[in-house]
Simulated scan of single mutants.
Amino acid sequence: MKMLVIYTYPHHNSLNYAFLRHIIKGSKQNPHIKELQVLDLYEEEFNPLLVFNEQKRRRDMHIDPAIEKYRQQITWADKIVFIYPIWWGRPPAMLLGYIDQLFASNFAYKDKKGLFPEGLLKGKSVVCVSTMKGPTHYPFLWLNNAHKILMKRALFNFVGIKRVKFFEFGNMESTKGNQIKKLEKIHKYFSKLDH
């Protein structure tokens, strides 16, 4: 298995970075994970802004040379892992800008007759590891599960990715947030992952 980890947090002195370290550590102990790449969107200084004009058309995003290396990473990966905080009930603008550009028509999906397009990323799987200040069940109880619906139905299923696993960790700014236990849970999951 080849795994791409996309880390989206502004700095490394953070709980999100601790989750990244535990994912890397667990993955290196896992004989099923043969290769691992990490993309740190902030460190990479990824530009999340969409720009369309006469020279740069939306219909050509799937061949935009400025983001070719990121398309190659997605094509290469069997499993894509996203690490990010949930801010205002959804992922950060940096990650959404990455998604806007990379999950483009004729790369991630292809329009066809009928209601739904053809997903072009079939066979891949996704794990979303997200943190939030509020309680774990806040997105489900107050936001009608908007985060998972956005990521799974509106994005991943749309592009053909059916296997999606979520870890939504709440109370992460609390001294009673069980951060160590949650880090250990992530380490164990990635050390035993087999598909």
Rank of each mutant, 00 (worst) to 15 (best):
K2R: 14
M3Y: 00
M3K: 12
S14H: 02
R21T: 10
K25M: 00
K25Q: 09
K28C: 11
Q29H: 10
H32A: 13
I33W: 03
K34H: 14
K34F: 07
E35G: 11
L36S: 10
Q37M: 11
Q37K: 13
V38K: 03
L39N: 09
D40S: 04
L41T: 03
L41W: 01
E45R: 14
L49W: 00
L50T: 08
Q55C: 02
D60R: 08
M61I: 03
I63H: 06
I63M: 12
P65R: 05
A66D: 15
T75D: 11
W76L: 06
A77M: 03
K79T: 10
K79H: 11
I80D: 08
I80F: 05
F82I: 01
F82P: 03
I83D: 05
P85K: 04
P92Y: 02
A93L: 04
L96M: 14
Y98R: 01
Y98I: 00
F103I: 09
F103N: 08
F107T: 07
F107H: 08
F107R: 06
A108F: 04
K110W: 02
K110G: 04
F116L: 14
L120W: 00
L121K: 10
K122V: 09
K124W: 09
K124D: 12
T131G: 01
M132Y: 01
G134N: 12
G134P: 00
H137Y: 10
Y138T: 13
F140M: 10
F140G: 05
F140A: 13
W142N: 13
L143Y: 03
N145F: 00
H147Q: 13
H147L: 14
K148C: 07
G160T: 05
I161H: 01
F167T: 15
F167K: 15
E168R: 14
F169Q: 07
E173W: 04
E173K: 12
N178P: 07
N178L: 12
K182A: 05
F190W: 06
L193K: 11
